[in-house]
Amino acid sequence: MAIEHAYKKLKEISLEEFILPGTSTCGGCGGLEALRLAHKVLGKNVVFVNAAGCFTLLALFPFSPFKGSWLYTTMASAPAGAQGIRDALDLLIARGALSIEEDLQVIVLAGDGASYDIGLASTSGAIYRNLDFWYFCYDNEAYGNTGVQMSSATPYAARTTTTPAAVLTPEGTELPKKDLFEIWRAHCPPYLATVSPRHPLDLARKFEKAKAFKGPKLFIAYSPCPTGWHYDPGQTPEIARLAVETGLWALKEAVHGEVAHTYIPKKLKSVEEYLQAQGRFAHLFHPVRQEAALRKIREAITQYWAPYLRTMQNAK
């Protein structure tokens, strides 16, 4: 399939909206921003298969914001729902009960809690079965809908309502973020990428590119969450920009398991700028500076980027 759009400039982004306004997501929701941009590339012939999370309330009786279709399943089994719909559409089309023009792209829409934790087995199953579907994980790094509890996507040293920064746990979350990208990549899906709403062209190019693949097309969208991360909603793009520029959120893709970074910051910005912008990390600076924790965060970034930055150096 030929690439329809190169997405070289902002003005290639579709003017049409596929998710209409009026939903109950928080103002400034980074996940919604990413989803809206992705939807513009995917067009209207989609059916979302949703797992419980903030976005479950996007469609709330008697209202739907979508120009396409929707099925809320459970928290743990949205990929299985995608399997059922995809298979049923294929069967209906094969026996002529549905014309090919009626076909839909099936998209799992799930938060990080659903994706990294409770729904991981179901996702693994769907990828293993090489299901022809899209997976859009909006990663707000916590269980948002239930009031911002820790998930296995919560980064080290973030404060959540179940990982308070307290006497015995001064850093808040003690464990590092699970590497879902690598877990998914181990299944060798045809296409896998991370995206960020602050990089709309990178995002659009990736969704456009993924269209060429049959099978699982998986996306983890960095989704700044003003409510859960404690910053002013207007800062969402800036937080997202800093995440990428500090090297915390790597923009990358993997085609049949082969990883490539789609953006490598020329020089990594100090991660403290990112951390200080969000209330969920405030305890790292007040009342005392938690030097050890900050060092750990810095080291993890350095360790991640070392091989790539070295390659860059060599290339020069």
Partner: peptide, 18 residues
């Protein structure tokens, strides 16, 4: 049955008051 057959009708719901 609990479904919505009016796509995009959320536009009827105003959030400007937020």
């Amino acid at each position: 049955t609990p479904s919505v057959a009016a796509p995009g009708n959320i536009i009827l719901r105003k959030t400007g008051g937020w």
